[in-house]
């Protein structure tokens, strides 16, 4: 790889070039003793700091699982809050090691941006939220409405496609930060707030009167959200990819945070391979035998992670829906460990 210090040609955004994006991210991570994850600036359920500055959420747990798989310690996960606009540059430039920031997997991002998506930790779709007193029950009644959204997201493109294809008028008001979108929508500047449905459930909690707002039934896009890493580092790509797969496999095999230690004695060869009592799968991705055990101990299996952060018993109250395991009729499916 080229010299690591490349002076800024194009100001801040060209931190792009201040890359030490050496091919061996895993070595770098091990050397500094922590994993740096890019997360959102505060999206309840996915990545949100509490009053003590501790991050929680599904994306945060994904990051903690990676840290635990490498170091056996979930506290080795460090978080960098990023706006939608900053996120790719931060990853490209090596400011973060992995982006776990409710980011939609699209073709152009996967190819032209030099990123690799490692899987899907949440199947989402874009929806609309409106105030109840607007008396709207379908997105098709929104002709002439003004729509608040975030800049630099797939959301902005989807909403344009949707309104155009249904030949409806609209006006888009696009803010850089989610908090300002919420404030503007709450103030009545817009009739509609649009983002991924999970985001709508999360942001609804921040409104003055959450009960006065309703999320419309239409889902207008496919938004597979997942962790992303830099292209050209297959070893690191494998670590992140298989950590997520391990959590999904764990749920399928009935391995939970509480029973993971007993499960090591299981006779099921699939469980044995996952938990490292048989084979050397951990070593083959540059980690130790206990990688999956440590990840599961830190955050539980995928189902536990989902229920703890966004599931029906949380404030967000999101149904598993598409995110059920394939065996339960959902889309979550991980290749086997063998």
């Amino acid at each position: 790889m080229k010299k690591s210090i490349v002076p800024l040609v194009a100001g801040a955004a060209l931190a792009v070039s201040a890359v030490s994006a050496s091919a061996a991210t895993l070595d770098d991570v091990k050397a500094k003793g922590s994993v740096q994850c890019g997360v959102s600036q505060g999206l309840p359920g996915f990545s949100n700091p509490d009053s003590q500055g501790n991050w929680t959420g599904l994306d945060v747990d994904t990051c903690k699982a990676i840290a635990a798989a490498i170091f056996g310690n979930a506290d080795a996960a460090k978080f960098t809050p990023l706006s939608a606009k900053e996120r790719f540059t931060a990853l490209q430039s090596g400011e973060v090691d992995v982006l776990t920031r409710n980011t939609t997997w699209t073709m152009s991002r996967d190819t032209d941006l030099g990123l690799n998506f490692t899987g899907v930790n949440y199947y989402d779709g874009q929806g609309f939220m409106v105030p109840k007193d607007l008396g709207v029950s379908s997105a098709l009644e929104l002709s002439g409405a003004s729509v608040c959204t975030n800049t630099g997201t797939t959301t902005e493109l989807n909403v344009a496609d949707y309104f155009r294809s249904h030949d409806m008028d609209y006006e888009v008001v696009a803010f850089e930060k989610a908090d300002e979108v919420v404030a503007a929508y709450d103030a009545g500047r817009c009739d509609v707030y649009t983002t991924d449905q999970s985001g709508l459930y999360a942001q609804k909690l921040k409104l003055t009167n959450p009960d006065d707002h309703v999320i419309l039934p239409e889902i207008i896009s496919k938004e597979p959200l997942g962790p992303a890493v830099r292209q050209g580092d297959d070893q690191w790509f494998n670590v992140v990819k298989w950590t997520l797969f391990a959590l999904i496999n764990a749920e399928e095999l009935g391995v939970t945070q509480d029973n993971v230690d007993e499960m090591k004695n299981s006779d099921n060869p699939s469980i044995k391979r996952l938990l490292g009592t048989e084979g050397s799968f951990g070593e083959s991705i540059g980690l130790d035998k206990e990688w999956a055990v440590n990840a599961i101990k830190a955050v539980g299996n995928y189902g536990e992670m989902f229920n703890r952060n966004v599931g029906p018993d949380t404030e967000l109250g999101i149904d598993r829906g598409l995110n059920k395991l394939w065996s339960d009729g959902g889309l979550q499916y991980a290749p086997p460990v063998r």
Binding site: A13, T151, G152
Partner: peptide, 27 residues
Amino acid sequence: VAIAYPDLVSVFAGTALNQTGRAVEFI
């Protein structure tokens, strides 16, 4: 960009840059 006024930085160096990911050219 803070209040969604579509000026050059907001729509070109912001939204357009982000949709294409071409930071160098746009900046």
